[in-house]
Design a protein around this nucleic acid. Structure first.
Length: 469
RNA sequence: GGCGACGUACCCAAGUGGUCUAAGGGGGGGGUCUGCAAAACCCCUAUUCGCCGGUUCGAAUCCGGCCGUCGCCUCCA
């Protein structure tokens, strides 16, 4: 039974879906005005792991990740570059999608854009106005009235009465009834995009889009909502207020928040100049699977310290995984004609590993423990290979490895050999049969130059692809 | 000022009352196997969990104090 820690209640409790036939998950996605950094992806990959684990557990999931394509930062970025907003957001959406794919993030079922869901957002504002939870100011902006929503502050554990009044109040917010009220709809201003609407021309405030799009695709009440811990307040607090005030229903069953990633102990920030962007790292030739591993290796609720050692350590771990996978394949292939039986010990190892892995993931997604189960499995599996286990055993081990990998997504992709490698491998087999080691070594070097790592074992010559795939 | 989190080996990182003389990955040292290389396996690398007290038969785990780091209260994954 999956246990999850819910931010709102503060409790770790069994996850019971509203509708067992389809679990709805909404993850606050990126604002697409620039490249995503590894901290962003830490939280997206946390959601990916959640989705993968639920699906591996046999659940049907509908996963929605929004793209924020209208806000102050985007307007500013477009103005600065002298381009229209849409081409700018299109460009960064495609960068985001390619980062996503490289890091093996599951493709969300829906990736809605805020600007394509304006009517849904307007509808929420209309409902809030009707119910007296919202009001219009002199300039035409519309605010949510916090005083009308007594439970405001519950998620973030903030006392609304004690909330410090922000020193910086925007010019267009001077007429708010209460400085703590948040904007739902920003009145149209010259030089800014706006939409004509029954509630007056304007554009949506930031929080509104997530309420509108989550409810549009998942219903007025849905199971899981994820995001970085920094979104707890005000973003998610405001989402709850505006959604529940509009519908009168419980908005989200379980709130999940991912802790921050730090770089060598510091927060990533422009002033420190320590922002590691995913697309930059990939362009530098970083193995995407190693980056994925580095970003998922700590429990999602504790901060993760990313250092200069993180990637090399992850690369080494990935190579260990690859070598094991290649060795299992070689053993399975060598004995394909007469696979024999699965050893009792192997069968037991496979079962206990799956059990241990599942227990870890069910324990509020305890990925570090799940990875410990994986690497213990690799060591035990290698021992069986060293002890010349049957081909059937190798197949069983490989199936277990692949079943864990439905969730982890770290195994090498099915690979194709570079041009000419097939012939070189065959020539090397022949050279070794003739005990011509000089030729064998030369061919190994040639293959290495092509990116094909060759190793000799009792199962004969085996190979794997170096670097990224 | 208010609220909260964290401090575990050289690095990353689990564990939150006994199975801990503390998982797992990386790194380092030694060994086995091997034509060589690589991979793999074995052994070693924290009797100790920021510091000081307390509770308990028993604490890394609970309580108090102190030191340090970080987060939120304002845009942020």
């Amino acid at each position: 039974m999956l246990q999850l820690r819910d931010t709102l209640s503060g409790a770790t409790r069994p996850f019971v879906p509203l509708n067992p036939d389809q679990i709805g998950i909404y993850s606050c996605g990126p604002t697409i005005y620039g490249p995503a950094h590894i901290g962003n992806f830490r939280s997206f990959l946390f959601a990916d792991l959640l989705v993968r684990w639920l699906r591996a557990s046999g659940r049907t999931v509908r996963w929605v990740v929004n793209l924020t394509d209208i806000d102050d930062k985007i307007i500013r970025a477009a103005a600065k570059e002298g381009v229209e907003i849409r081409p700018l957001t299109d460009r960064w959406e495609s960068v985001f999608r390619s980062d996503m794919q490289a890091l093996r993030m599951t493709e969300p079922d829906v990736m809605p854009r805020a600007t394509e869901h304006i009517p849904e957002q307007i509808a929420i504002v209309e409902r809030l106005l009707e119910k007296g939870h919202a009001y219009k100011t002199e300039d035409g902006s519309i605010f949510f009235r916090i005083a009308s929503w007594p439970s405001y502050g519950t998620l973030a554990r903030l006392d609304p009465e004690a909330m410090r009044v922000g020193e910086r109040v925007e010019a267009d917010e001077y007429s708010k009834d209460d400085v703590r009220d948040f904007v739902l709809w920003k009145a149209a201003k010259p030089g800014e995009p706006s939409w004509e609407a029954s509630i007056g021309a304007g554009r949506p405030g930031w929080h509104l889009e997530c309420s509108a799009m989550s409810m549009r695709y998942l219903g007025e009440s849905f199971d899981l909502h994820t995001g970085g811990i920094d979104l707890v307040f005000p973003h998610h607090e405001d989402e709850i207020a505006q959604s529940e005030a509009a519908t009168g229903k419980r908005f989200v069953g379980t709130w999940l928040h991912c802790a921050h990633l730090h770089v060598s102990g510091d927060k990533m920030s422009k002033s420190l100049g320590n922002i590691a962007r995913v697309s930059d790292l990939l362009a530098e030739g970083v193995e995407p699977r190693a980056l994925r591993l580095a970003l998922i290796s700590a429990h999602y609720r504790t901060s993760l310290n990313y250092t200069s050692d993180s990637l090399p350590a992850a690369v080494a771990a990935i190579e260990r995984l690859d070598a094991f996978d290649a060795a299992l394949s070689a053993r399975a292939a060598r004995g394909a004609d007469a696979p024999g039986e699965v050893n009792t010990d192997v069968a037991e190892l496979a079962t206990s590993t799956r059990t241990r892995f599942a227990a870890a993931m069910n324990n509020d997604l305890a990925v570090p423990e799940a990875l410990a189960a994986l690497f213990d499995f690799i060591r035990e599996g290698n021992r069986h290979l060293d002890a010349e286990c049957s081909a059937a055993s190798a197949v069983a081990l490989r199936e277990t490895l692949q079943s864990l990998d439905q969730t982890l997504a770290l195994l090498p992709a099915a690979v194709t050999l570079p041009a000419g490698a097939e012939e070189l491998l065959a020539a090397r087999v022949a050279a070794r049969a003739a005990r011509d080691f000089a030729a064998s070594d030369r061919l190994r070097d040639e293959l290495a130059a092509l990116g094909v790592l060759v190793e000799d074992s009792r199962d004969g010559q085996r190979w794997r692809i170096a670097g990224s795939n």
